[in-house]
């Protein structure tokens, strides 16, 4: 069974149709790269998966369970949406770290707030806190930030911030981790360290959806590639198919801009 299925996702802002009948599925431990020109709807798609936008049409399933169905009437209550969105993690282009917290606190905060909802929280407070802290420290160490845990975001470089943001998303153990152009806000010399971390996650069989303009990286890390244009999926296949032998004229045009430039 696929870990993620998206069927016939449609999203409009006012009269502008931004996503037009988007369908794809993803197996566990697969990495999906989404490429496409600016304004083609890549960010909107990730935002729909993370419940930041509500599609007007379509169904989203995780492990066979319907987490979103536009046809379902009646609004879901906040608690239900919160539970469902935890299947997904999202790493933003601009990090969106919480500036008043240290790197370690950024990674721990959401987990601690969730832990408070456990029935045995009061009794095991200290123990739970220590567990969460140890886990967060391990995650940051894995990200190569062992000596940066007590720093505030403004004391970190862009590449370090993005790695904290990745650790923060991983702390909640999402089934699927989404990245929206994780290196676009970075100086070129800092993109490598972030891509290396994502590469490492792929090696650990993390299921990921990665929107990126780094074509070489997309080709290298992905098991599946989607090329989007104007709200449609124009082409979809393995990296070899999409990059090596694109069938569609629009894909060829798009890729040629990268190979030449």
């Amino acid at each position: 069974m696929p870990i993620l299925e998206a069927e016939h996702i449609c999203k409009s802002f006012g009269n502008t149709e931004v996503l037009k009948d988007i369908s794809f599925s993803l197996e566990k431990s697969e990495v999906l790269s989404i490429i496409g020109s600016s304004g083609s709807g890549k960010t909107t798609l990730l935002r729909c998966l993370n419940f930041l936008e509500r599609p007007q049409g379509g169904v989203i399933r995780v492990n066979g369970e319907t987490v979103f169905d536009a046809a379902e009437t009646g609004t879901k209550n906040d608690a239900e949406i919160r539970k469902r969105r935890l299947h997904f993690g999202l790493v933003f282009q601009s990090f969106n770290l919480f500036p008043q917290y240290t790197a370690l606190q950024n990674v721990m905060l959401a987990k601690e707030l969730l832990a408070k909802e456990q029935p045995d929280y009061k009794a095991r407070k200290k123990e739970i806190h220590d567990e969460i802290e140890a886990e967060a420290e391990q995650l940051l160490t894995d990200m190569g930030l062992a000596d940066r845990m007590q720093n505030y975001p403004h004391q970190l470089s862009g590449g370090q911030c993005q790695r904290v943001a990745i650790a923060r998303a991983l702390a909640l153990r999402p089934d699927i981790l989404c990245f929206d152009e994780p290196t676009s806000a970075l100086d070129p010399e800092l993109t490598g360290e972030v891509l290396k971390v994502i590469r490492g996650l792929a090696d650990q069989k993390m299921t990921m959806v990665i929107v990126t303009h780094e074509m070489a990286f997309a080709r290298d890390v992905a098991s599946q590639v989607i090329f989007m244009d104007d709200g449609y999926i124009v082409e979809q296949g393995t990296p070899e198919q999409v990059f090596g032998a694109p069938k569609e004229e629009r894909t060829r045009q798009f890729l040629s801009r990268y190979t030449q430039g």
């Binding site: 993370n50 419940f51 930041l52 919160r82 539970k83 969105r85 935890l86 997904f88 993690g89 999202l90 933003f92 969106n96 770290l97 919480f98 905060l109 959401a110 707030l113 969730l114 923060r168 998303a169 909640l172």
Partner: peptide
């Protein structure tokens, strides 16, 4: 948005 996707 960062808070929301973290389930807060």
């Amino acid at each position: 948005e960062a808070g929301l996707v973290l389930g807060m």
